[in-house]
Write a protein that binds this DNA or RNA. Structure first.
Lengths: 242, 242
DNA sequence: GAGTGGTCTAGACCACTCC
DNA sequence: GAGTGGTCTAGACCACTCC
């Protein structure tokens, strides 16, 4: 606390950050600098009130928000501590293809190659957790960025959950978005692989030579049930993720 | 609010939930029942104060926490609204290579090919946000599963943040884990690509032919500063992620 | 000007821990 | 009993929106 001074806006045009944000920054700064290492006990709320000249409710809000965010741990009757270092989960957000394209300033188009009901073959039945021969919807799309194919989407959908799938409009709304809108509680599991393109992929993605591709297998669950499974193929020379 | 009554513990042994939790439950209950659908404008804080007999700070805390959690949207001067249904972000968790291998029941080994300080070349300087020619640590590891190479890790580390990097033990603890343990506040950004292996990759990963690989570029940030940048190469025929 | 949410205070009472 | 964090209040001032 020796050098804390609340930010003042008397002479500046930008409004100052709220006091509780200033307290949060102050705590994080001490953590980043190593001044307050893991397991370090912070000054008590009472002490911070006195030393920073800020009311206890405001100090408390700052520390509570840092605790909710995982930076601190608080024990009633004992004190406030810098949280033990936990391995940060390294998460990658997989954006929708149309969002990726729009974020790059491109124009997204979706070409429907087929869209039909069919009896599930062994692979499809396996992926969808259905009986071989059961009715399944299958769609096969090529997504283009300014005309150039950037993703192939080969998708199965369980007709029991989405009987209207075959009548949906995929030119403006992706299949994933249709699913998300219908099922608010949908969860997803992904497997990512690299593979070289084969004749099928070369044809639909209009690749001139064998190309390394990212292949994402995505299953979409509603509780215990698989609503949809898709294989997404991205040519490595045209697109990257993340 | 017609039937809201704060929970009372006069005759019960369990302590009552705090008032702000009771307000949160009350709001969520109205949302779940459909009473307050998406875009519905909630009663104002002032109205809730009057009707629930709870002070404004407590009402405010409840609504603020529901807003942070994404259930509500608040606009100063206008009001509080039930949030629009949003598409679920699709996240992929990138596990550490040693965790992946152990999860599959394999034995993980890390082979250090080099580990040294060097002046940053243009690419390295670029990735690390450093000046060309500045000192940078570089490590080059091959990770093996039961003897078979499954990942190449080419990593730069900023010596200013981790002067002890060159003396670390990488046989039992990955570089990423070393970094996570030292810096609790590390954040990561990833770019994933597919590429075919070149002579360097074929050599270190002991690949017999050109192979499609997943390439992850991971940058690890401490605030505004890049602490480390790594290129991780996974041969597509030996490993998949997720 | 009336109504909204955003912040902040000074005080209070409490449950809990440690000695 | 002294110190800790958890909650709650009644009031204040403010920025912002809408009319």
């Amino acid at each position: 606390m020796p050098h804390f001074k609340p930010q003042n806006d008397d002479r500046s045009y930008a409004p100052p950050k709220p006091l509780y944000e200033q307290v949060k920054s102050y705590v994080l700064k001490n953590m980043e600098s190593g001044e307050w290492p893991a397991y370090f006990q912070l000054p008590s709320e009472h002490t911070l009130v006195r030393e920073m000249g800020i009311s206890r409710m405001t100090i408390h809000r700052a520390l509570r928000e840092l605790t909710q965010a995982g930076y601190l741990e608080r024990i009633q009757g004992v004190g406030t501590f810098v949280a033990a270092p936990k391995k940060q989960p390294k998460k990658l957000e997989l954006q929708e293809i149309d969002d990726i394209i729009r974020a790059r300033g491109g124009r997204h188009q979706c070409e429907v190659h087929f869209l039909q009901g069919e009896p599930a073959e062994k692979d499809a039945a396996n992926m969808m957790g259905m009986e071989v021969g059961a009715d399944v919807y299958r769609s096969y799309f090529v997504h283009r960025e300014n005309g150039l194919p950037v993703m192939l989407e080969d998708r199965y959908v369980n007709p029991a959950f989405m009987p209207e799938y075959l009548d949906a409009d995929f030119s403006r709304i992706t299949a994933d978005t249709h699913l998300s809108r219908k099922f608010a509680l949908l969860s997803h599991a992904h497997v990512i692989q690299a593979a070289v393109s084969n004749a099928e992929i070369n044809h639909f993605l209009e690749l001139e030579a064998t190309t390394a591709c990212i292949v994402i297998n995505r299953k979409s669950w509603l509780g215990e049930d698989i609503v949809s499974a898709a294989r997404l193929v991205f040519p490595g020379n045209r697109i990257q993720l993340g």
